[in-house]
Amino acid sequence: MSLPGSVVRHLDPLDEKTAMTLLAREQVGRLAFCMHGGPHIEVVNFVVVDGDVIFRIGVSAKLAALGRGGVFALQCDRINTGTRTGWTVTVQGPARTLSAEEVAALPIQPDPWAPGERPRVVCLTPRHIFGRVLSADE
């Protein structure tokens, strides 16, 4: 219960369609995977194509995790610190390297912001989609 004039906050789940729509509007997320027996998180640039998350990688821990067939997760959010509201979406699923033909057929290419070679294009296919929105009423 809130006091008169105070803010009432709501934390509600997002349906999968809304979660994927929000995710598709973004370009930067946190990619999680297992490395050396524990969780590891790196920032990646991505695009969403036909419900799949597409990003580029080089020779790195991500490539090693991909080779082991590990499950990946990508988390993205939009937060308003002024109103203390926002949303978060996490997708989890298997990932695979796309062939040159598959990459050429993509309607949009992932465009890494950081320097360095990232010749491999990876497709994460969401099997689990989680999203929540934090809103406020005055």
Rank of each mutant, 00 (worst) to 15 (best):
L134N: 00
V59E: 15
F130P: 00
G37L: 09
R68F: 02
A19W: 00
P4I: 07
S135P: 00
L23F: 07
G82S: 14
R120N: 13
Q75W: 00
G82F: 06
A19T: 02
L134R: 06
D111C: 09
A136Q: 14
R96W: 07
G67M: 09
F46I: 07
R56I: 08
R120E: 12
N80M: 00
P112I: 02
A64M: 12
W87I: 05
E16H: 15
E102G: 04
A104E: 14
G70S: 12
S60R: 05
H40F: 12
G58I: 11
G131M: 02
P107D: 10
R84W: 05
E138Q: 12
V89L: 05
W113C: 12
I57Y: 04
R84N: 08
S99D: 12
L106W: 05
V122Y: 04
S2H: 13
N45V: 03
P115Y: 07
V103H: 14
E16A: 15
V71A: 09
R25M: 06
L124P: 00
I129S: 05
M20R: 09
F55M: 09
D77Y: 10
G70H: 13
S99G: 13
D77R: 06
F55H: 10
D12H: 01
E42R: 08
G5R: 08
G69F: 15
I57C: 12
F130K: 03
E117I: 06
V7D: 12
S60T: 15
R132V: 10
I129C: 07
H40Q: 15
A64E: 14
F130V: 02
L106H: 04
M35L: 14
S6P: 00
H40A: 15
A32L: 04
L14F: 02
E26C: 11
E42N: 12
V53C: 14
L74M: 10
G93Y: 07
I54M: 10
L3S: 11
V121H: 05
L23E: 06
G58H: 10
T85N: 07
F130N: 03
V103A: 10
M1I: 00
V48C: 08
P126G: 08
T21D: 15
R132M: 10
S60P: 09
A32Q: 07
T125M: 09
H128W: 05
V49Q: 05
G131D: 02
F55Q: 03
T18C: 05
L66D: 09
A32V: 04
C123S: 14
V89T: 04
G51H: 01
F72T: 00
F33V: 08
L124F: 04
A95C: 14
I129N: 01
P13D: 14
G93Q: 10
G67V: 06
